[in-house]
Design a protein around this nucleic acid. Structure first.
Lengths: 214, 214
DNA sequence: TTGACAACATACTCAGTAGTATGTTCATCA
DNA sequence: TGATGAACATACTACTGAGTATGTTGTCAA
């Protein structure tokens, strides 16, 4: 068994399924997306999906995990930037927003997953997998939380309730997954302009001073 | 046929169904909510639902409409408040946020409906009903849009792209439908404190000056 | 060249669900 | 007082969709 040669092929097929599934989940939601839908969008049949994933719930969980991985890897390089909190927060927020735009289908799946978990959906068996993923998400949230706290101490952020401020901030930073859609002839610079407006809005909401923008 | 006597009873039953349906749609989403679920939550059966509503899609549309009606009626008294834009905007925003909290199940249904429409769900037949409801929603959005524009002219709001600012503002003001849940022993004053923080965040995001708060 | 297995496709089962057809009950009115 | 219809409940149909069981094909290792 020459794993070194064959696994990349399988992994590529798996990745294709994940992408297609993410798009389907984004377009129709979890419940309304059938395995046949995902397969059809790949020009394949159920067999291919169930060969790689044991169930619909597992497929969804993998999409969720992939989305979170992308976020974590994007923000990780900046979480320990030395110096004051504001420029670090801006950099992290900017990278986060760009991730929302660049990997929208996966991020919508993450959103759907969080909603489902809050509603108490999923079976007890899948619940365990979900709890791990939600823990993952909490860890990610903490990266921002720490910077928020430091920013408040430094006087660049002013807010009453940390929990509410955190909710509102993420709501703003995540929102492009709902309203962003690419325009024809759009450049990378255009996208960055959009992202900057989102970050500015969040900063203003947190009562961030306008000095020292990246 | 003595309509004057009997219709109130039917209307009350209808209203009960709408409330139950709104809660079910909030808890499980549209697709995962079965008519039997709604009936069971009322201690009734399908027959009762289908006696008052021709289909699941129509039931959902009525929940949507009820939610929008509540919003419109809550904001209507303040849309023509004379004077500068900022206090009017704050009042409208405050009332809107309180509506999100007070009628959360209906507002979640409105959200779900908008998402479904954007994804192009619903049959062509239901599409027409939905288009009317979405038009209703657009009209509601315009109430805020006008005040935003006036506020920008008066220099109390500063934002680049009107469309993006509007999206971010509504995202913030609507967000309690996702993260708010009542605490034990919570007073009306506590709720108003939460709502005020949401409005403050949105105002900050729009670069609203902090002077003249209500 | 031949087994063996990965990577699928095909053909089923079965549970859940929207919608319908048909009772049943009770208040009202002629 | 008997007929009528509103307001339901009950019993059914038809279909969709998750999951499974079983083919089929191409590739690699011995």
């Amino acid at each position: 068994m020459s794993l070194g040669v064959r696994e990349p092929v399988a992994d590529s097929s798996r990745a294709d399924i994940l992408r297609a599934a993410a798009t389907c989940f984004m377009e129709r939601g979890y419940a309304s997306t059938s395995i046949d839908d995902v397969a059809r969008s790949l020009g394949a049949t159920k067999g291919r999906i169930y060969h790689h994933f044991p169930s619909k719930a597992d497929l969804f969980a993998e999409v969720f995990r992939a989305g979170m991985d992308m976020n974590y890897q994007a923000v990780e390089p900046y979480r320990h930037l030395p110096g004051p909190a504001l420029p670090r927060w801006r950099k992290m927020a900017m990278v986060h927003v760009l991730q929302m735009i660049d990997t929208k289908p996966f991020q919508r799946a993450v959103w759907i997953g969080v909603e489902m978990h809050l509603r108490g959906a999923t079976t007890p068996a899948q619940r365990e997998v979900f709890n791990e993923l939600l823990e993952y998400r909490s860890t990610y949230g903490r990266l921002f939380r720490e910077t928020l706290l430091q920013g408040r101490e430094e006087g660049v952020f002013r807010f009453d309730d940390m929990s509410i401020a955190n909710q509102l901030m993420f709501m703003t930073l995540n929102s492009p997954i709902f309203w962003y859609s690419p325009r024809v002839g759009e450049t990378r610079s255009d996208i960055e302009t959009i992202a900057r407006q989102v970050v500015d809005f969040a900063q203003g909401g947190l009562r961030g001073t306008q000095e020292n923008p990246i």
